[in-house]
């Protein structure tokens, strides 16, 4: 007998039990967002402050470029607020 029978229970228990490390990545927290950050690459000075202050580590700083992981970005807007040259602006998400 497979685990299908207990699937409902397992889903419920997932909040307290750990089946595999890092399963939290199933939570696509990007769905919470109402505003999305957008980077103006011309203004960006690569100071990496946005990378440092992102609570969810959704900003990558690779090869002198800032990349935002919209899959998990909760849209808090700290990056836009803290950017010293205002190179990040928050854009309203359109519903599909």
């Amino acid at each position: 007998m497979g685990l299908e029978k207990h699937e409902k229970f397992i889903m419920k228990a997932k909040s307290t039990l750990v089946f595999e490390p890092g399963w939290s990545e199933d939570n696509l927290t990007g769905a919470w967002r109402s505003e999305r950050p957008e980077v103006d690459e011309e203004k960006c000075t690569n100071c990496d402050i946005c990378w440092l202050v992102c609570p969810d580590a959704c900003i990558k700083r690779e090869g002198g470029k800032i990349e935002i992981n919209l899959k998990y970005c909760k849209g808090c807007g700290i990056c836009a607020e803290e950017c010293p040259v205002k190179a990040i602006i928050m854009v309203r998400e359109e519903s599909d």
Binding site: S24, E25, N27, D56, K60, N69, K71, Y72, C76
Partner: peptide, 24 residues
């Protein structure tokens, strides 16, 4: 800031509120 490691020690998908200071 440039000396800091790029490696993250937390997986994505934590249930912290948007703008949570504690998880930062």
């Amino acid at each position: 800031i440039k000396d800091l490691t790029d490696e993250e020690f937390l997986h994505y998908g934590s249930l912290s509120c948007a703008g949570c200071g504690a998880i930062l």
